[in-house]
Design a protein around this nucleic acid. Structure first.
Lengths: 228, 228
DNA sequence: TGTACATCAGTGAACGCGCGTTCACTGATGTAC
DNA sequence: TGTACATCAGTGAACGCGCGTTCACTGATGTAC
């Protein structure tokens, strides 16, 4: 290992540490993350951070991309852990709980990804690609259902404009899936994130206490409706 | 009208104007609303605001309470506008569109109510009462369905802990409604807010373009599942 | 009806703070010959 | 293997800014007698 790569590795280490510290700060400061506070926490002078990130926005972007990746990792490995690949419902439930568990454990990051947009921050296109890995897991389940013939058929009459929006998606990511089936999948998807967001953002406080059971039940019923 | 009430009326006017200005600022600054900026916009000196609100948090609280009230007004009047009170589906669709229309037209306020919690702001209990008016509209529809016997029956086996959480709600707000029926209603509710949040927070960008049609379709299918 | 006093809205200066970002610098690490 | 040079991480001071909140004040509006 050349000495050159030592410097590179230290750089990678410190970059990682900056992001970890920033993530901790997200929890208390929300989206108005302060570079100076992060630097202070690391015992550095604030200007030193500029060796690693060109601006506050760039750090935010890195956090967002990492967040999407971490969520996708959790979701994908939950899906893969289901031994019976044909058990679509088990796979659906696995990814639902993976999303919720991750969101509850990393609520500040979840808020950064799925909460109100950060004032003054314009998400660069790189974040879009990162965002699509998680829903891809659901589409994969639906696609497998089509391939195995176990996804229930649909007779969901779609408005033409909606069909036109969904057609390119089925075409490129799950050929054979009908737009109606995809629409049902999205309904489940939106239920999933609606439920998680309500819980994480405190809208369920004083209403539902058995959070996990409530969530599990709702997602199980959603599965019914998706057809898995 | 006594002269005393002139002062009172001016006070009410200016209070309203402060809140309107603050609402405008929410759109660009998000939750880190600045008192000074609001004052500047009104041509006042920043300390003058303290005659009207004891602190920034108090202004935020007022905005949140107003927001919940405005949303509830929109929802209630949309419900009431449905002539055939027995047409539960029409009423459900009316409140869904009322929520979405309001959210799209007032996205910054929507974010304040349903987005990430504001860092450092602890919602006082007054906001909780304000928040409950909107869901009450749904419960009213479900209750009417029970009374009319048109709400489809349910055979949804609920986990005991969830049933226990929901029982006090059915009991006090819609006697006769089963917990399973309420759970279905909440599923629709969470779909509704999940869908609106994804749209308002930009998660549907580059995916669905026919926003209104998509939403309408999804909520119509949700109605099916709720049983209205 | 007129006067004395109390209430209140708005002013302007100040306190103490934190922020993102730039810049010239030092000293250590890595590279080329 | 040793030396001369280039690269890079981190420092510390500074710029210019905005923030929430307090306080003593002025002058207008309202109230009591």
């Amino acid at each position: 290992m050349s000495t050159g790569s030592i410097r590179a590795r230290v750089r990678a280490e410190i970059t990682k540490e900056i992001k970890m510290t920033a993530r901790r700060h997200l929890a208390t400061d929300g989206a108005n993350l302060s570079l100076r506070a992060v630097a202070r926490d690391m015992g550095m002078v604030s200007s030193a951070l500029y060796r690693y990130f060109a601006s506050r926005d760039e750090l935010l972007t890195a956090l967002i991309i990492d967040g999407y990746a971490a969520l996708a990792d959790a979701v994908e490995s939950a899906d893969v852990a289901v031994a019976d690949r044909g058990d679509l419902r088990a796979r659906w439930m696995a990814i639902c709980h993976a999303v919720r568990d991750w969101a509850v454990a990393n609520s500040a990051e979840y808020a950064l990804l799925f909460g109100s947009p950060v004032p003054g921050y314009a998400a660069p296109t790189e974040t879009i690609a990162a965002a699509s890995r998680t829903p891809a897991a659901l589409v994969r389940i639906l696609g497998d259902g089509v391939r195995l013939g176990t996804l229930t058929d649909d007779s969901e009459p779609l408005p033409p404009a909606v069909r036109a929006d969904l057609a390119p998606i089925t075409e490129s990511f799950a050929p054979g899936l009908t737009e109606g089936q995809l629409a049902r999948g999205m309904r489940g998807w939106l239920s999933l994130f609606g439920t998680v967001s309500f819980e994480v953002f405190g809208q369920l406080n004083n209403v539902v206490h058995a959070r996990r059971e409530f969530f599990d039940h709702q997602m199980r019923q959603a599965a019914e409706q998706i057809g898995v």
